[in-house]
Amino acid sequence: MSSRSINLQTVRIGFLGAGSIVEAMLSGIEKKRLLSPDQVKITNRCNQDRLRSLASKFGVIACAEKDSVISGSDVLILAMKPKDAAEACLAMRGMVREDQLIISVIAGVSTSCIEEWLGTACPIVRTMPNTSSAIGLSVTGLAANAYVTEEQLQTATRLFEAIGSVYTVAEEELDIITGLSGSGPAYIYYLVEAMEGAGAEAGLSREMARQLTVQTLLGAAQMLLHTTDEPSLLRKKVTSPGGTTQAGLEVLESYRFHEAITSAVLRAAERARELGAQYR
């Protein structure tokens, strides 16, 4: 059964937390018309102004108390900060049902930790979206524990398809996904800073340098999406012997650019494992 065949019209969703990822998901759900607003409840620890703002924007139900969100939801989405996760989950002990699907967007916290804190052998899906979820272009890694049914996995997939692409993986792969696509936008923005700065230093206006850089990245991304050529081959096609591109690439190689990017991804993944270890 395709995830697209799952009927979400009777599924009740509860968000515990009201941060930027929740707002992005609510926006995606609204745009894709996956759920009606009265199927969604949201709560957070203390910021009532934020709850009222999201309720007004999306028409969802804001709740000051988490009890009604938990008892009235088929799917609970844990979206609190990692430092608050243990306290929040321990406070939910005895309230979560074994048939409720728990979806975590808490960075670094394993499904086994959540299960232990909740004190219930319940289905848990752990996810790792990235910041591009704000414009519906997230890359989301999704991992399920042993209690998640196929239908529940498809429900989770549908919800995160509302903010971008979804890839189901083994939980141990989420750390490298964090290093690659979770932190990846920052590497791209860092590259844009450098290219834009170089254009401005050479005499272009900042606005022109930005437009040229962004359009260049967009074109390169589309080439990668719409051709079967490997990136190395596409790079060679741009690089004429003795030409301008070769001259630029030689500078990047002298600064060990390839090694730097590889090391950045691997170090970010390692840091994700380090942060997660404190909760195990």
Rank of each mutant, 00 (worst) to 15 (best):
S3K: 12
R4L: 15
Q9M: 04
L16M: 08
G17Y: 03
G19H: 10
S20N: 13
M25C: 10
S27E: 09
K31C: 00
K31G: 00
K32T: 15
L34C: 06
P37N: 07
D49R: 06
G59E: 05
G59D: 08
D67P: 08
S68D: 07
G72C: 14
A79W: 03
K81Y: 02
K83L: 12
A85F: 05
A91H: 12
M92H: 07
G94S: 13
V96Q: 10
V96R: 10
V105M: 14
A107R: 03
S112L: 10
W117S: 03
T120L: 12
M128V: 07
P129C: 11
N130I: 09
I135C: 14
V139R: 02
A144R: 12
Y147R: 15
Y147T: 11
V148T: 08
T149R: 07
E150L: 13
E151I: 04
E151F: 04
T157K: 04
T157G: 00
R158A: 14
F160V: 08
A170L: 07
E173W: 11
I177Q: 00
G197A: 09
G197W: 11
E207F: 09
R235K: 14
P241Q: 07
G248T: 07
E253M: 05
V265M: 02
A269L: 09
A269F: 05
